[in-house]
Nucleic acid binder design. Sequence first.
DNA 1: CAGAATCCAAAATGATACTG
DNA 2: CAGTATCATTTTGGATTCTG
Lengths: 141, 141
Amino acid sequence: MKKMNSTNQHNLETIRAICGTAHALSVIGGRWKPTILHLLLHGKMRYGRLRRVIPGISERMLVLQLRELEKDGLVRRIVYAEVPPRVEYELTEEGLSMKPMLESISAWGRYHHAKNQTEQEENEEEELAKKLEQVLGDLTP
Amino acid sequence: MKKMNSTNQHNLETIRAICGTAHALSVIGGRWKPTILHLLLHGKMRYGRLRRVIPGISERMLVLQLRELEKDGLVRRIVYAEVPPRVEYELTEEGLSMKPMLESISAWGRYHHAKNQTEQEENEEEELAKKLEQVLGDLTP
DNA sequence: CAGAATCCAAAATGATACTG
DNA sequence: CAGTATCATTTTGGATTCTG
């Protein structure tokens, strides 16, 4: 059990190759990609603006994710030969082809999130009710 | 710069709360969940069978992912009081509601995978052509 | 059979300082 | 401005052993 010689990596690659869903998720997955893609769906954007509007992202992550998206052919990087430098990012045609999928995911996500939200609240209410019952039980036998 | 007290965790939660897509991805994401969900879309399945048909998954991961899916209300765990024990897993109604989304993701994934595949081959052909040119160039000035 | 528990490796993310 | 480089930390995944 010295080296696992990346069974991990191997498993990942295998699954990506067989399963379309896994492949898609590996492309749009990661913590920040959904947000970046969402923003770029509305039009091109400069690097600095992206950094400022995405709350909490580090420069390292932003560049990294952008580079991956670029490598996957979803995002185009446009460099203007100016000073101070200016770089814009925009979706390619292939990137735009994700729109229906992204909307489908987003819709289900919001639906599920809302549902779980209310369930949680119900659970909390139940717990509260239980505690209340205990307390009251002691007082009113 | 001692403790980051999980800015990581915080960022994740924030994004999940704001962005439907990120929330959905955190639910169906992970290396094995797409495969598990895909299998369960075809009907209920026993634990052992899941383990056997998913190539390369470890028991730990299988149980872990199933538990998460259960917690998120997508999968139901059915225990039969028999010996030897028997446990089956099936999608809940909420789990089934993912079907259109999953198909949309899978379709795009396969499309994108195929496209990148051919692009890679084209690149390889180009490289090959270049090398060939170099070799031939030396021979036929 | 279906898993729980433990321990370790690898990948993802974050903070920060520096540069053309 | 738009990054790059480096290092620390957090999270995820895998192997193995044990149990009701």
